[in-house]
Amino acid sequence: MNIVPLPDLMIEPLVRAALLEDLGRAGDITTDAIVPAGNLVRMVLRPRQPGVVAGLDLAVLAFRLIEPSIEVSVVKADGSRIAADETIATVGGPARGLLTGERTALNFLCHLSGIANATRTVVDAIAGQKVKVVCTRKTTPGLRAIEKYAVRAGGGSNHRFGLDDAVLIKDNHIAIAGGIRPAVERVRASCGHMVKVEVEVDTLDQLESALSLGIDAVLLDNMPPDMLSKAVGITAGRAITEASGRIAPDTAPAIAATGVDLISIGWLTHSAPILDIGLDYL
């Protein structure tokens, strides 16, 4: 899988902040006391379990911001499936730099690989269906760009990145506005013609009302598969259909079979378990 990497300009502030948090006020006092300054070593990044790789650029940057002379040879690029104990990358250079950057590098790599692996699990569960798996805005504060990148590395796609790149009219918006129609009309009067409009609905009557207004997408919230099938039939291609609400790998196939265009899943970014990866001395 060919994953377009994020530019260093985006990821470097995150890695620098994480390293500074770890280095504190005196640096790595353990490594500096034990390891001679000129000691050169080779180490290898290996997973303890099978999964999907994501976040290598951040891991590499964590090492190189500590010690620019560290060399990295990538064996499995982001988006690759890996077996337990398979080599992801080898790293070589001053032992002090490798040990000091180790935890920050692994924090990013394990977390993002966990998201990619969780995404791939759902994508595999619905293989052969036209539906796409997308993430949400339920991300770790400050890490949205890289967590959404990890979803792409796992074979998923991204929903909106923030409040400013698309309109999603949810239940509270509708309640405060006094209905779907006034909410959509206010959006149309305020936002530019390039902004897409999606409306969240949880009944078929609400769906009919939203579709009558020519919106771009409907979020079908917490609907069971039989109701989703009816909603897809009613929509009949007039808008993009998105299913959402507690979707897991075992429930995704039935939801995908209803014909919805998208399945959005919040836990991919807010609750995916890490992929256990270690840095081993050769």
Rank of each mutant, 00 (worst) to 15 (best):
Pro224Gly: 06
Asp165Arg: 15
Ala183Glu: 10
Val151Gln: 15
Gly162Tyr: 09
Val199Glu: 06
Ala236Pro: 07
Asn172Ser: 10
Gly179Cys: 04
Val197Glu: 00
Glu185Asn: 15
Arg188His: 05
Lys130Gln: 09
Ala175Pro: 04
Arg160Val: 08
Glu200Pro: 00
Ala189Thr: 08
Cys191Asp: 05
Leu168Gly: 01
Gly214His: 10
Thr203Gly: 02
Ile180Ala: 11
Glu200Leu: 02
Ser157Lys: 12
Phe161Glu: 12
Ser157Pro: 01
Val151His: 14
Ala177Gly: 02
Val197Tyr: 00
Met227Gly: 14
Ala145Val: 13
Ala127Lys: 10
Met223Tyr: 11
Ile169Phe: 01
Ala166Ser: 09
His193Met: 12
Lys170Pro: 12
Ser209Asn: 15
Tyr149Trp: 15
Leu163Asp: 02
Leu168Pro: 03
Ile215Trp: 07
Asp205Pro: 05
Ile215Glu: 07
Val123Tyr: 05
Asp202Leu: 00
Glu185Trp: 04
Ala177Asp: 04
Lys196Arg: 12
Ala166Lys: 14
Gly154Asn: 07
Gly179Asn: 13
Leu168Glu: 02
Asp226Asn: 13
Gly192Glu: 03
Gln129Met: 01
Glu147Trp: 07
Leu143Arg: 14
Ala189Trp: 08
Leu219Asn: 06
Glu208His: 06
Ala127Asn: 12
Val232Ser: 15
Thr140Gln: 12
Asp226Phe: 02
Val195Cys: 04
Ala189Tyr: 11
Ala127Phe: 03
Arg186Leu: 13
Val184Met: 09
Thr139Tyr: 05
Gly128Cys: 03
Asp164Arg: 10
Cys191Pro: 02
Glu208Thr: 13
Ala236Ile: 14
Leu220Cys: 06
Thr203Lys: 02
Gly156Ile: 05
Asp226Lys: 06
Met227Asp: 06
Pro182Ile: 04
Val131Met: 00
Val197Ile: 11
Gly214Asp: 14
Lys170Glu: 07
Gly156Glu: 04
Ser157Ala: 15
Gly155Phe: 00
Leu204His: 11
Val187His: 03
Glu200Val: 03
Ser190Trp: 11
Asp165Glu: 10
Thr203Met: 01
His159Leu: 03
Thr140Ile: 12
Pro224His: 07
Lys196Cys: 01
Glu208Ile: 07
Asp205Cys: 04
Gly233Tyr: 04
Ala166Arg: 11
Ala125Gly: 10
Arg152Gln: 06
Asp202Val: 00
Val199His: 08
Gly179Met: 12
Gly214Met: 14
His173Gly: 08
Val218Asp: 09
Ile174Arg: 09
Asp165Met: 11
Gly233Ala: 08
Arg238Phe: 12
Thr136Phe: 00
Lys130His: 06
Lys132Cys: 03
Arg152Ser: 05
Asp226Cys: 01
Lys148Ser: 04
Pro225Met: 11
Asn158Ser: 06
Ala145Met: 11
Thr203Cys: 02
Leu219Asp: 03
Lys170Gly: 13
Cys135Met: 01
Arg160Asp: 06
Thr235Ile: 10
Pro225Gln: 08
Leu211Gln: 05
Val134Lys: 00
Val195Arg: 08
Gln129Glu: 06
Gly192Cys: 05
Thr235Ala: 15
Leu143Ile: 12
Asp202Gly: 05
His173Pro: 07
Asp171Gln: 09
Val201Ala: 01
Thr139Gly: 11
Ala239Phe: 05
Cys135Asp: 12
Asn158Val: 03
Asp202Arg: 03
Val201Trp: 00
Gly192Ile: 08
Gly233Leu: 06
Thr235Pro: 13
Arg238Cys: 10
Ala127Glu: 14
Arg144Glu: 07
Asp216Leu: 15
Leu204Cys: 06
His159Thr: 01
Gly214Glu: 12
